[in-house]
C-alpha cells in the first residue's frame, strides 16, 4: 500500500480518539451539572438530607 494512503488511517485514529475521549469528558461534565441541578432543585423545595428534615417533610406534604 502506498505510504501516502496511510495518513488517512493515522488521522482517522486520532479523530476517533478525539471523539470518544471528548464524548466521555462531556458525559462526565453534563452528568455532574445534572446532579447538581437536581440537588439544588430538591434543596429549593426544602428536601435536604441533614438540614431541618422535619420542615422539609412538611413542605413535601404541602406540595403533594
Amino acid at each position: 500500500m502506498d505510504p501516502a494512503n496511510h495518513m488517512g488511517f493515522i488521522v482517522a485514529a486520532y479523530a476517533a480518539t478525539l471523539v470518544i475521549v471528548g464524548a466521555l469528558i462531556a458525559w462526565v461534565m453534563l452528568d455532574y451539572r445534572a446532579q447538581q441541578r437536581t440537588l439544588a432543585e430538591l434543596d429549593r423545595r426544602g428536601v435536604s438530607r441533614r438540614s431541618a428534615p422535619a420542615p422539609a417533610m412538611e413542605q413535601a406534604k404541602e406540595q403533594a
Binding site: D31, Y32, Q35, T38, L39, L42, S48, R49, A60, A64
Partner: peptide, 16 residues
C-alpha cells in the same frame, strides 16, 4: 451525588 438525589427523592416520597 446521584445516590444523594435518590435518597432525597425516597425521603420525599415517604413523606408524601
Amino acid at each position: 451525588l446521584r445516590r444523594r438525589v435518590r435518597t432525597l427523592r425516597l425521603m420525599q416520597a415517604n413523606a408524601v
